[in-house]
Design a protein around this nucleic acid. Structure first.
Length: 401
DNA sequence: AGGTATTCACATGAAACTATTCTCTGAGTTAGG
DNA sequence: TAACTCAGAGAATAGTTTCATGTGAATACCTGT
């Protein structure tokens, strides 16, 4: 047994990979130059350039859907700015925070804690009053003369959870600081994000706005080709694969990241099956895998109650094409009783259903049945394979049967 | 027939509560001098 | 007397409950012909 594993690793090592450098297809990879985004990068650079003279640039807001190159562009700019700053001894500091990361920066406290961490000081994960965290942050910022570029990626996620009060505080930091200056760059996926923001915050935060339009199919194809050339050995990718991949992503509002992910997974699947090439069939398989992984992963880390609701839906769905909140709630109650979980209120279930809808696991529409009330009409539009896997997962998690 | 008023079955929002996790503080305890 | 322990106070957070209010259109109920 041990020997077998040993042999497996030996031969795994010997077999040459179809990948030249897989890292090229990951989201952390930084290309030499970013194509089709030159205009936007120049614009942002124009706005932020005063930072190099230690003058406070205008706050910037960047909009654009997922996979339109926002994050990578801003990182690219930050990187080259800090290179220059270092060379010329400019006290410039850039902080990049992704606000969406669960349990890292998705609350006011944690976001600040994260910022402090980036500034090189540790702070306990909980237990302290928020004001204290604020003052630590202030004093840390003000400890020396410097200009801080604060990039908040997916900023809409924070506001959704904790309101815009903290953004207001951030915009006011400058007046409190004696030595330093801070410039905020907000990045948002949501195009109408700033509309339901406190007007004061809105005006001071979005002094400048830049929009990243989606890529079209041709652009995605070019991007993919460039990446593929770096990632795979020559002649691995079969004709038409890149094209199809691009077409698929273009259909989904020009999301380049998805296209790149898809290509990477297709490559991994091909490699795992021992193939020397990547063809369309691998791509199709990858597409399915991405979808099912997304859903399985999302459900796996949810609380029991959430899983119970989903299990209830799975039990109802084979018989019915669509069903309503009340029915799901009844089924859910039965499950809880049987498994001796405590039963949550319908109010909560309503929220859980909304979350399931957000995750794309169910498809819910709010309809009015006139005299017979108003409710969600729920469809479960998952592939048969995924349903089976999902059911297995849930039964295990909930210890059913 | 045509118009309007009701009414159902939830949706949606806000606030408040609960359990858990964590820090900090200071009293009490211990061990060594 | 310094070092250690440990309970209790105070905070933040996720998940939930409670209370309140909103809502779209199929029906019930009128009205006048």
């Amino acid at each position: 047994m041990v020997m077998e594993i040993h042999n497996f690793f030996e031969s795994y090592l010997k077999q040459d990979s179809i990948f030249l450098d897989k890292a090229v297809l990951t989201s952390t990879y930084m290309p030499e130059n970013i194509i089709y985004r030159e205009e936007q990068i120049q614009e942002v650079a124009n706005i932020l350039a005063p930072a190099l003279r230690v003058e406070k640039p205008s706050n910037v807001f960047i909009y654009g859907k997922t996979g339109t190159g926002k994050t990578i562009s801003i990182k690219y700019i930050l990187r080259s700015m800090s290179v220059i700053a270092e060379k010329n001894n400019i006290p410039l500091r850039s902080l990049y925070i992704n606000c969406k990361l669960k349990r890292v920066a998705d609350t006011e406290y944690r976001l600040l804690a994260r910022l402090i961490h980036e500034l090189g000081k540790e702070v306990p994960p909980t237990g302290l009053p928020t004001d204290e965290i604020y003052s630590t942050f202030y004093s840390l910022l003000d400890s020396q003369r410097q200009l801080v570029l604060l990039v908040l990626d997916e900023i809409d996620q924070v506001t959704k959870k904790i309101g815009d009060e903290m953004l207001y505080n951030l915009t006011r930091i400058n007046s409190e600081l004696k030595q330093s200056q801070i410039c905020i760059v907000g990045i948002s996926n949501n195009l109408i994000f700033s509309e339901n923001l406190d007007p004061r915050v809105k005006s001071s935060l979005s002094e400048e706005e830049i929009i990243f339009p989606p890529y079209n199919a041709i652009q995605i194809k070019d991007i993919l080709e460039k990446r593929a050339a770096g990632a795979f050995h020559e002649k691995v990718i079969q004709a038409g694969v890149v094209e199809k991949c691009a077409a698929y992503a273009a259909r989904e509002h020009g999301d380049a990241r998805r296209a790149i992910d898809l290509l990477r997974i297709a490559g991994e699947l091909a490699e795992r099956s021992g193939s020397k090439i990547v063809d369309i069939s691998h791509l199709d398989e990858a597409e399915k895998k991405v979808e099912s992984d997304k859903i399985l992963h999302a459900t796996k880390h949810q609380p029991k109650q959430f899983q119970s609701v989903l299990y209830g839906i799975l039990l109802i769905s084979p018989q019915r094409r669509s069903f309503f909140t009340g029915e799901v709630y009844e089924m859910y109650k039965k499950i809880c009783l049987r498994q001796k979980f405590n039963v949550l209120t319908q109010r909560r279930i309503s929220d859980i259903l909304a979350e399931l809808d957000m995750l794309g696991i169910i498809n819910a529409k709010i309809i009015s049945k006139g005299r017979y009330g108003r409710t969600r009409e729920i469809f479960l539009s998952l592939d048969e394979n995924i349903i089976i896997k999902l059911k297995e997962l849930l039964e295990k998690a909930l210890q059913i049967k």
